[in-house]
Amino acid sequence: MIRTLFDISTALIQAPMAGVQDAVLAASVCEAGGLGSLPCAMLSKIQLIEQLELLSRSTSKPYNLNFFCHSTLQYTKLQKQQWHLTLAPYFNEYAIAESSLADEASRQPINQSIIDIIAPYKPAVVSFHFGLPAPFLLEQIKSWGASVISTATTIEEAKWLVDNGADAVIAQGLEAGGHRGHFLSMDLSLHKSTAELVQECVAQLVVPVIAAGGIATEDDVAHMQALGAAGVQVGSAYLLCNEANTSAIHRNAILSQQKDNTALTTLFSGRAARGICNRAMKELGSMPLHVPPFPYASIAITALRSRAEALGDSGFSPLWCGQKYIPREHMSAAQITQTLMQKWLV
Rank of each mutant, 00 (worst) to 15 (best):
T339N: 15
S58K: 12
A216T: 08
H250A: 11
G34S: 08
R3F: 00
K192D: 10
S71Y: 12
S236N: 08
Q335G: 03
R279Q: 10
R307P: 07
Q323T: 04
Q335P: 00
V29I: 12
F67N: 05
D7Y: 07
N245M: 14
I149H: 02
A158V: 03
A168E: 05
F68M: 10
T153I: 08
N92P: 03
A95E: 13
M331R: 14
G33K: 09
R180I: 01
L101Q: 10
K192Q: 15
R274D: 05
A244I: 06
A229W: 02
E53T: 11
V198N: 06
A212C: 11
C321K: 01
L54G: 04
M186S: 15
G177S: 01
A222R: 13
M331E: 13
Q257I: 03
P133Y: 00
G131Y: 02
I114G: 06
L205H: 04
L197H: 01
L161H: 02
I110Y: 04
L48S: 09
N64L: 10
L132W: 04
M287H: 11
K77W: 08
S256W: 04
T337Q: 06
L101A: 08
S189P: 13
S113A: 14
S56C: 10
M341A: 05
D167S: 10
V202K: 06
Y121L: 00
I13N: 07
K192A: 13
L340M: 10
G315P: 10
I299Y: 05
D163P: 02
L284S: 03
A303K: 06
H179Q: 11
G131T: 07
P208S: 06
Y94S: 09
A168H: 05
A310V: 01
Q258Y: 08
V209G: 03
D220I: 05
H191L: 14
P288R: 00
S147G: 02
T302Y: 05
L197G: 05
A297Q: 02
I2Y: 01
H84E: 11
D220L: 07
L43D: 01
L78W: 07
E156Q: 14
K80A: 13
L340E: 09
D167V: 07
I49G: 02
L78R: 14
C241P: 03
I118N: 08
S236E: 10
P120G: 00
F67M: 07
G275L: 08
A226I: 11
H179N: 10
K61L: 15
A222P: 00
V206D: 15
I2C: 03
K343H: 13
Q257R: 15
Y63A: 11
L184P: 07
A124E: 10
V24C: 10
G214C: 05
